[in-house]
Design a protein around this nucleic acid. Structure first.
Lengths: 177, 177
DNA sequence: ACCTGAACACCGTTCAAGT
DNA sequence: ACCTGAACACCGTTCAAGT
């Protein structure tokens, strides 16, 4: 058996995540990833069908990572929001890709369990899904705007985050009109 | 004066927006845009420094377009949310780029005026900015998730949108804790 | 069975030469 | 003054040939 495996899928994905964060999506080239794991670019095609498939794997690993952090977070909306935001700040480039067509629904569903539980605690099982979507949409949008620099003008971003979280929670617990 | 202008910046941007929607970001090549306006790719560099500059112009035009739609919308949060969502469905590829580093803060600020007014009507001038950010973050995140297919499983997307809008409005108008 | 050099297609970009 | 063909660098991808 000549030429034993010189790398693994997991190692390639880890290298791709590092390249993504340090060089952005345009810098995430097959050659850059290959060099980092010590092979040549064509070898990556034995493991991933094409660059898109590698990107999909990168996003899946990112979502799993995020899901793990959320499992460890304080199990209420404030704890989840804080953890979610810290993750976005730590891995901004990968975070930007989480809600794109690169994300598979399976990974997204797995990572949303902690949010669903916190939502159910707050509003009951019946509205849990809609409440979780409200929370996730707000947090995701807020972080995308923050990362895009849409808050460059006016006011404290931290205060806007706190205000949003507080009003959102108030809305979820307010009696139904 | 030989070789009079064979196109204009506005025409190039309009062509780029069409290519973007029909072929996605990867299909938005300088050649595809050039062909559509009847010149060769190198000619575009007389008008835009590089592809990134063209993309920035595309996003600016998109944000201005969105701002105009919001100005014409019913001036409350429900009217704005409906218009915002219709725009995202009509130009999904461009919408995805609005909250990326391609967006300039100037355009974003201009297009946010209607949201700021609706927010001020609801919560008063003091909290208008934070309330507008809460609303915009939720709507943006919701639409990004919807476009990414993150709602493929479970429940009606329309109902989730209505629920979010209703709870959000309730939270903004609830008395402060 | 995995890895690689060589090759090809395609794209962004530059620039000298046209009109 | 704007436009273009030709050229270059770079990247994704394929594949025959190595071990």
């Amino acid at each position: 058996m000549p030429s034993p495996n010189r790398t693994t899928n997991a190692e390639v994905v880890a290298a791709a995540r590092e390249v993504l964060e340090s060089a952005g999506p345009a810098g995430l080239t097959m050659q850059a990833v290959a060099t980092r794991v010590g092979v040549r670019a064509p070898s990556l095609y034995k493991r991933f069908h094409d660059r898109d498939a590698l990107l999909t794997a990168v996003v899946a690993a990112t979502v799993d990572d995020l899901g793990g952090r959320l499992e460890e977070a304080a199990p209420d909306l404030r704890g989840l929001a804080t953890t979610y935001r810290a993750f976005a700040h730590e891995q901004p480039e990968a975070f930007r890709l989480v809600f794109t067509p690169y994300a598979e629904e399976g990974a997204l569903r797995r990572s949303s369990a902690p949010v669903l539980r916190a939502a159910a605690d707050l509003v009951g099982e019946e509205d849990a899904l809609a409440a979780a979507r409200l929370f996730t949409a707000w947090a995701t949008g807020f972080l995308q705007m923050e990362l895009a620099g849409a808050f460059r003008l006016g006011g404290s971003v931290d205060e806007a985050f706190d205000y949003g979280l507080e009003r959102l929670t108030a809305g979820l617990t307010a009696t139904r009109a």
